[in-house]
């Protein structure tokens, strides 16, 4: 089943074409990487897919529903959550509250039952707390749950952001440089975690990453973007031996 599809996606900022004729098809259970040099337009692709930008032209379909032009919260509710390149946690809130907020749209009670503290409210809040704690356990953040998010070590903040995205109950998970700033050991752990989370939550994953070990170890397919144009697509092995890609991006030592 096609989870996410982009057809001829183009994004222009004034005279600058950041992304040109981008095509993507993700099927259930896929794990696909998007790589490319700095400024290639990778994050722009993410921002278009998640509704942060309205693409200049092209179509985006999430689970068969056309989403270009919808606002980000509507797209999230359809089943696609993301993380950000420069970590956008709710910095001054606790780890626990960061996750709880992401359960917001699934909370089945209205303002009146919150004000009157009706049984529905208590039941839903109870269930949100339980689900939050379960997620925190999975990500090994349970013991830190009353700490302020910005006080966590960098690697934990990255993991918290992924946990928060999962709390939004996605079917498709978009990760924007999940391993950025991590040491090789943490990256290794993260690779295992992403693979595990993908299987456990039956996700389809699309990720941007500079760390080649993570990309090559994790992804079934890789797309390479350079100056907004898709210059290659294929398995990790094909990408590694693709002359155009090597020239544009990977450099000698990656081979």
């Amino acid at each position: 089943m096609t989870m996410l599809e982009a057809r001829n996606l183009t994004m222009q900022f004034g005279g600058l074409t950041a992304v040109s004729q981008f095509n993507l098809t993700l099927s259930q259970g896929d794990i696909v990487g998007l790589i490319g040099p700095n400024g290639a337009g990778k994050t722009t692709v993410f921002n278009c897919l998640t509704g942060m930008y309205v693409p200049t032209s092209g179509e985006i379909h999430v689970l068969g529903k056309r989403v270009d032009g919808l606002s980000p919260h509507q797209i999230t509710r359809l089943g696609m959550a993301r993380t950000f390149q420069n970590i956008r946690l709710f910095k001054d809130l606790t780890v626990f509250d960061n996750i709880r907020i992401a359960f917001h749209y699934q909370a089945q009670y209205n303002l009146a039952s919150a004000i009157l503290r009706l049984p529905t409210f208590r039941r839903e809040e109870q269930s949100i707390s339980e689900k939050t704690n379960a997620l925190l356990e999975i990500f090994g953040l349970y013991d830190h749950r009353h700490e302020i998010a910005s006080s966590l070590p960098y690697g934990d903040q990255r993991r918290l952001e992924i946990a928060r995205a999962l709390a939004a109950n996605p079917k498709i998970l978009l990760l924007d440089e999940p391993a950025a700033g991590m040491n090789p050991y943490e990256t290794q752990e993260l690779t295992t975690l992403i693979q595990w989370v993908k299987d456990e939550f039956e996700l389809t994953v699309f990720l941007i990453e500079h760390d080649m070990r993570l990309v090559m170890g994790l992804c079934q397919r890789i797309l390479v973007l350079d100056y907004g144009v898709t210059i290659a697509e294929g398995t990790p092995r094909e990408i590694q031996s693709n002359a155009v890609v090597v020239q544009a991006y990977l450099g000698e030592e990656a081979l």
Binding site: M52, H73, T76, R82, D92, L93, H104
Partner: peptide
């Protein structure tokens, strides 16, 4: 509170 803390992240979380 999520809106106060980070509007873009709040929006991305389905708010």
């Amino acid at each position: 509170v999520a809106i106060r803390e980070d509007e873009i992240a709040a929006e991305a979380m389905g708010i």
